[in-house]
């Protein structure tokens, strides 16, 4: 899920000097055949109102070839609403949303990926799991974040890549090669900051169990907590299709 949420995911590579190799190794170390968890998401609005939602998440495959389904389980009025994400190695993902009350699926257009993901501070684009090859990197230096020494790396989407962000600054821990912060910019203006914390090792993969996203425009934040997280659970490919999405 971390990669799923990361969007511009980054992991680290301790010894590598080449910045692209750092990101590639980070991606390699976080790979798994599948992933499953239950998420609790809290949105803290600018007027201090808090909304709480729960979902179940499943992923099969990894990075550029992965497919994910996210189904809301609570509150009651959103139960059953689901999102299917099919990632591609060479282009942006395809995304469909299913609304059971209408028995309708709808394709989330590429141009709409910059909009907020159902009232949270994530955008649809932030949900994409992108491949290291879709970006160009530049090492900006090293910096201490939350007491941890990190590589500070700038990533810019390649021309073929459609993105609302013109650049992002990734902070990758030097000790365990896990990304712990991403700052996303549009024309040098900070749009979102995503912080990864509560990092635990599970099935030999360092994973952040708490992800906090801050929307600089709205001055609001969303906290996602990952529970019952499992990697490499046996899953079937046919459960990640439009038909499966509609079946519920």
């Amino acid at each position: 899920m971390n990669r799923f949420v990361f969007g511009l995911v980054v992991l680290g590579l301790a010894q590598a000097q080449d910045v692209r190799q750092i990101v590639a190794e980070s991606q390699k170390r976080s790979q798994s055949k599948s992933e499953q968890y239950e998420g609790t998401i809290e949105v803290f609005g600018s007027s201090n109102k808090v909304s709480l939602k729960h979902w179940e998440f499943e992923r099969i495959g990894s990075f550029g070839v992965s497919k994910s389904i996210l189904r809301f389980t609570a509150p009651a009025e959103v139960k059953g609403v689901a999102l299917l994400i099919v990632n591609h190695p060479d282009r942006s993902s395809d995304q469909w949303m299913w609304t059971p009350a209408l028995e309708r699926d709808r394709h989330i257009a590429l141009q709409d990926r910059s909009t907020r993901f159902f009232g949270t501070d994530f955008s649809f684009e932030d949900l994409e799991e992108r491949d290291v090859n879709q970006f160009d990197y530049k090492l900006l230096g090293e910096e201490l974040v939350d007491g941890q020494q990190c590589w500070k790396i700038e990533s810019k989407p390649k021309e073929a890549k459609s993105s609302q962000y013109t650049s992002a600054v990734l902070f990758i821990r030097k000790d365990i090669y896990v990304g712990i912060q991403i700052e996303s910019y549009a024309k040098d203006k900070l749009v979102r900051r995503i912080r990864y914390s509560d990092i635990q090792k599970l099935d030999d993969i360092w994973t952040a169990r708490t992800i906090e996203v801050y929307d600089a425009n709205r001055k609001s934040r969303t906290v996602l907590k990952l529970e019952k997280l499992k990697y490499n659970v046996p899953m079937k490919d046919e459960n990640f299709t439009l038909e499966a999405l509609r079946r519920g």
Partner: peptide
């Protein structure tokens, strides 16, 4: 209204 709900397209979309 509750910003989290009203300003939340998910509920809007989920409930016809």
């Amino acid at each position: 209204g509750e910003a989290g709900i009203v300003d939340d397209p998910l509920v809007f979309l989920a409930q016809p």
